[in-house]
Amino acid sequence: MVEVKNLVKKYGSQVAVDDVSFTAEAGEILGFLGPNGAGKSTTMNIITGYISSSSGTVTVDGCEIMDDPVGAKSKIGYLPEIPPLYVDMTVRKYLEFVYNLKKVRLPKTEHIDEVCTVVKIKDIQNRLIKNLSKGYKQRVGLAQALIGNPPVIILDEPTVGLDPKQIIEMRNLIKGLGKKHTVILSSHVLSEVQATCDRIIIINKGKLVADSRTSSLSDTLSSSHNLLLRVIGTPSSVMNALRSVDGVVKVEKGKFVYDGCYEYELHTDKATDPSKGIFYAMAKNNTPIVLMRSNELSLEEAFLKLTEPTVPGKKGGRS
């Protein structure tokens, strides 16, 4: 649906977006994640045709944004970081203006009513936009992006400045939109994208550092699995027994928990699951396991790992 190829944007000598490529399939919610200033908004502005790229192509539903800007733009609904609202208009008048501006062919009154119902702004239609709260302004901005039922919806930090209740509502709304539209949303909040997106793209300093499904992101980041163990028994005998288990690559003694009980960190082979073997080995060794859990990178850790300044010789996990 949206295909971005080798996108580069330079401001003078500064590279804001550096060779970014990805595709968003129809009906997919794609999360665009990165710290502030990573190039998220720039990329979105290029996809929507607000600014041009230095090189690279963006194709929206078969229309190239530079060759056929009108065709491509008519397929996109865009909510920029700051909602582009004319504050001296009423909500209804504003949405009618957007409807006319986008040359929408759907029945006017019904369509605007429908959009207002979806984003729940029906009861404030006749109020001036300048008198609305931030949350409502954000919703009017979203309504504006939905006018004309575009197949692609691009949302730049849609939940910034909303209260927790509104954030949950906005998330549910976006999830609902994902059924009918291709949604690309950006955020610097991890839990945000984790909660709403099917796929996550992480961008840092203009470069794409990861592109994977939400569920497997932390998976793909670490080449080996980690297990955390708490075992009662003498550390040396426990460690010896653990090392002999098939699939265990490395054993590290962790912190002291209580008398006779220590934590152990295990690096295990990805292919074989050694937890069963560990159980029997410990039983045979007569050292009971108090706790065993997989110690995978949380999304938060994965994000930090990917976006931290790259140390020479230590390559970032590109999947």
Binding site: N45, T48, G49, Y50, P69, V70, G71, K73, S74, I76, Y78, P80, I82, P84, L85, Y86, V87, V98, L101, K102, K103, Q144
Partner: peptide, 14 residues
């Protein structure tokens, strides 16, 4: 100033 040029320039209007 109000950033409303974003809606104009991202709409299918030249």
């Amino acid at each position: 100033k109000q950033r409303t040029d974003q809606i104009l320039l991202t709409s299918p209007v030249s």
